[in-house]
């Protein structure tokens, strides 16, 4: 993150809330981060952490009638949140593209896949000839590894398997060579062998196209496979932002410790209790005061009342660029983070 170039994406003090019958859901609460060209950044968190809502805001996809969005999201110097509809449409699909979780429902069932890829190209290349569009679509289908593309270009989504559909969604996303690709749980709905294929494909296409990937996932295995930088989200906040090696080897937030502990021991072929985080994530309508994680945190008693009253700010911890939002002192965070038994 010691990049001197301007970020391709800058999220500044983003807050997103939804009005519901039960009250105001604060899905994203004051988060800021920068993303630089060509990097792969993973945003990891459990359900309700706000990661998908945050991703939706980058392209202004959230329902504007119920969602209230504050802050700034700068793409190419344009603030997506205040830009005109025309400007945002110019960014969507061209500067920033998106892959969704469920390939079974992400494609329009009423049109051939050729038409759907072409549509994404034509909207940003209005002058393109039919011939050119056809060639672009075929080339894209080949790039994402769809066998016999000449035949399959005229088929409908339901004639494809889940993995193949996700490849088509990727083809749609990359057809305009975007600078940023947002992938929202792109492999969660897929089987492991297909997940491996899709992750490989995304990584090799990143090499070819050079785009930045923002990958949203709940799966730390996927993070370990592809990420350079990782943002850990909990209850609408960023609790840790670290380089991937730092996160896995010396995480600096109690929530990260718990998350890693919950899965890390799967890898070992031993039975025995998994480390668990007690309780469950809080309601976003009535978040706990202070640090949102404190009711589930085994360390919160050790540092007085600050955890219950003051919301911790994201700050640099240690020397490897990690940032953490925790009231524990740097020394404590580093020494527990490096230790094998973080509980």
């Amino acid at each position: 993150m010691s990049n001197t170039a301007a970020p391709v994406l800058s999220v500044q003090n983003l807050r997103v809330s939804f009005d519901t019958q039960d009250g105001t859901v604060r899905a994203v609460d004051d988060i800021s981060f920068d993303v630089y060209a060509g990097e792969t950044i993973c945003i990891v968190g459990e359900s309700g952490s706000g990661k998908s809502v945050m991703a939706g805001s980058i392209m202004r996809l959230n329902n504007s009638s119920t969602a209230t969005t504050e802050g700034k999201i700068l793409v190419n110097g344009i603030d997506v949140l205040t830009a005109s509809e025309e400007e945002v449409r110019g960014i969507r699909g061209s500067e920033v593209a998106m892959i969704f979780q469920d390939p079974m429902s992400a494609l329009n069932p009423y049109f051939t896949i050729g038409k759907q890829i072409a549509e994404a190209y034509v909207v940003h290349h209005p002058g393109a000839s039919k011939r050119e569009v056809h060639d672009v679509v075929l080339a894209m289908m080949i790039k994402v590894g769809i066998p016999s593309p000449e035949k399959r270009i005229d088929e409908y989504p339901h004639q494809f398997s889940g993995g193949m559909r996700q490849r088509i969604v990727i083809a749609i996303a990359l057809v305009n060579n975007p600078k940023i690709l947002i992938a929202d749980e792109p492999t969660t709905a897929l089987d492991v062998t297909v997940q491996a294929q899709i992750l490989d494909l995304m990584m090799s296409l990143q090499k070819e196209f050079g785009m930045t990937i923002i990958l949203i996932t709940h799966d730390l295995g996927v993070v370990a496979e592809v990420a350079q930088d990782v943002i850990v989200m909990y209850a609408g906040h960023i609790v840790e932002q670290s380089h991937v090696d730092a996160l896995f080897h010396s995480p600096t937030h109690p929530y990260s410790w718990g998350l890693l502990g919950s899965v890390a021991s799967y890898g070992a072929n031993k039975r025995g209790d998994l480390y668990t985080i007690s309780g469950s994530p809080p309601s976003l309508i009535s978040l706990p005061a202070g640090c949102a994680f404190h009711p589930r945190c085994v360390h919160s008693k050790g540092s007085g009342n600050a955890c219950m009253t003051v919301q911790p700010k994201l700050r640099d911890v240690g020397t490897d660029g990690s940032r953490s939002a925790c009231h524990l002192t740097d020394d404590v965070l580093i020494s527990i983070g490096r230790g094998s038994d973080r509980s």
């Binding site: 392209m59 996809l61 969507r92 699909g93 998106m98 979780q101 992400a106 494609l107 549509e119 749609i172």
Partner: peptide
């Protein structure tokens, strides 16, 4: 989801509504 993808493509509202 497929309507969301349509929006994410940058299509016009009119096109998304009709198609």
């Amino acid at each position: 989801d497929f309507v969301r993808l349509g929006v994410a493509k940058g299509l016009r509202l009119r096109v998304i509504l009709s198609r």
